[in-house]
Design a protein around this nucleic acid. Structure first.
Lengths: 240, 240
DNA sequence: ACTGTTAGCTTAACGACGTTATCTTAACTG
DNA sequence: CAGTTAAGATAACGTCGTTAAGCTAACAGT
């Protein structure tokens, strides 16, 4: 008797439920996202939702998947007007990444916090969509000579993680004015995360500039610190 | 009648409880961290814990605070043998950051996920400790001329967020082998996060190299993309 | 037209959670 | 030895995710 018969109707109801769940999440945060609350929002009892989703995790997975689709289209629409191959396009991509995280805080948090128990149920691994856009833009910029001739996948992952770090950190810390208590030149008229990213973009861009010493593709797996193996702290968390 | 009388004994018991909580967290994850479980682990009932902590959040805050102290000393011990002023020291700091995140996964997650409801109860904002070490090492490297003459706070925050992004992302995605399905030169013999960081370190270092065009301190708050205001997507998450 | 099936829901209930109020026990004090 | 009290246990409330059982309305077959 569980499960729904008409797949058409099922899909519609599921979409309604996912929509309600994401609204509760955006408005009141993760702890407010209960099955009973979602049910009440769509005019059903909590248990009725189990006709459409196996459990709460499955519902949350769907919300996350929706979030990633929105995320991807958000990134796309942010750079579609900028010609491919330009470094500017890559920088705008990073700016859009930050902006999405700030505008969709709760959403962004669960996207990279909750991991689906069955990864195949989500169309793509978290961030795959966003990463692909990064990769393509980077590859174009490399081909156009605006970024040094390194592996696009590597460079894209680098940019992605850098931008992701800024987004994540600013959601966790709100360091705009608290962590950085000193009065700095670059923070005096209201430090925003977007402003920070603008500044960081210079470091990022300089690190990826073409250089004459030829391409680096990491073939040599260079060690920079002499003792990379040997776990120099043995911090294995015994009791401590 | 609540609260404990002898502050000496109270401090000891609190430490025991925090310790038990962090063990449960490390062994079984956040969802296993319940007051009843912590109480059972220290031989008390769940409600007895309320004599030492106002609520669960306060206990978790203490666990997080402990984590940050461990984190800070972990970073310190990882670079104490490397002479100050060397860029190598900054790179080793980043490597230690990554390593801590990998070795203390659950710990690291809550450190940057849970935000205390009363920030003052935690000795320092999340990451302040780690950031300070970054800042000092960067400042030394700048003074020694191994990093370009920019604001140490800005550069430290940049490095911090870059490394944090790599750590966070790899905890969320496990892209070592899944997200990056293509067979790359740099991924062929087992891609580890530490290996990735080694590769990224080159980009990072190049972006921070001294350059002859003088210092950049961001006074001009440069805009790189022509249209930074104007919210080019209007993605305000209405419904659909 | 009456009966049986069944899709899709509701209600009841279970165990676990955080938390509060009340009760017990054991040590100390006069 | 009586009384106080510190520090715990027990009971209980409301909420959570989830399961089992019961209801209701639409539909099928003869």
């Amino acid at each position: 008797m569980p499960k729904v018969a008409d797949p058409q109707r099922a899909a519609e109801t599921e979409a309604t439920i996912v929509e309600a769940a994401k609204n509760i999440l955006a408005e009141n945060g993760l702890e407010a996202l209960s099955m009973r609350a979602v049910g009440a929002r769509v005019g059903l009892s909590a248990t009725a939702l189990y006709n459409y989703f196996e459990n709460k995790q499955a519902l949350v997975d769907r919300v996350v998947a929706r979030g990633f689709r929105r995320f991807e289209s958000y990134l796309w629409s942010a750079v579609e007007g900028i010609p491919t191959g330009r470094l500017e396009r890559v920088r705008a991509l990073g700016a859009a990444y930050i902006r999405f995280a700030m505008e969709n805080e709760q959403y962004f948090k669960i996207m990279f916090t909750i991991q689906p128990e069955d990864p195949r149920e989500i169309e793509e691994l978290p961030g795959q969509g966003g990463r692909r856009i990064f990769r393509d833009s980077v590859a174009d910029a490399i081909a156009a000579g605006e970024i040094r001739g390194a592996d696009p996948d590597l460079v894209a992952l680098y940019l992605w993680s850098s931008v992701h770090g800024l987004a994540t950190l600013s959601l966790a810390c709100d360091f705009t004015g608290e962590c950085l208590c000193g009065d700095h030149e670059w923070a005096k008229d209201g430090l925003t995360v977007e402003g920070l990213y603008d500044l960081f973009g210079d470091f990022l861009a300089d690190g990826l500039k073409p250089r004459d010493t030829g391409r680096i593709d990491g073939a040599g797996k260079r060690r920079t610190d002499g003792k990379r193996n040997g776990r120099d702290a043995e911090h294995r968390d015994g009791t401590g």
